[in-house]
Amino acid sequence: MKWIPASALVMLPVAALVAPALAHARINVGVEEAQQRLFPGQKLTQAPVLLTDAQRDRMRAASSVREPFKGERIWRTAQGEWFIVDEVIGKHEMVKYALAIGADGAIKGIEIMEYVESYGYEVGEAAWRQQFVGKTAEAPLKLNQDIKNISGATLSCKHLTDGVKRVMVMHELALKSQK
């Protein structure tokens, strides 16, 4: 092992000069892999949903997400749990993620599926994503309220949080009644 320490560690901020190791990373996880991570060993069947204009209006009002929601990317387990793929804008690029919702209407987990921005990968950290687990459509799901921000990744945090809120409202309006 050879370690050459920087002489004046704290005096030398480099965020602007050198991209961190993560800067060139690119997350790309397929639907099946995300399903296995959120529902290990379970069989999921696709369960697309058609949303009415009124439902879409309520989803937009509750979340301020404007991108169209694609109702065909929904799957369910035999136990009435849901796996939903959605996309929101990160800072410049789209972030694709998957949300798992239990039969009780509470979030079971969230996985980032596609992330191509240069910064803001911290939204993939388990500790940040863990904040969503257990929340229902009744939770505020608002950044800096019940979801903690990560400095340096604010836009990705904000848009993902809004996206999750929208999916939860959609679940409440269109999926929860399907038993």
């Binding site: 092992m1 050879k2 320490p5 920087a6 901020p13 480099v14 965020a15 050198v18 910064y119 340096g152």
Partner: peptide, 26 residues
Amino acid sequence: AQEPIFVRDPGDSGQLHFAGLLEQGA
């Protein structure tokens, strides 16, 4: 390889500090 290693600023985790160069180590 000799890798430059950065640590996050604990007061602002979006900010990085250069810690040193590492070879064959963790």
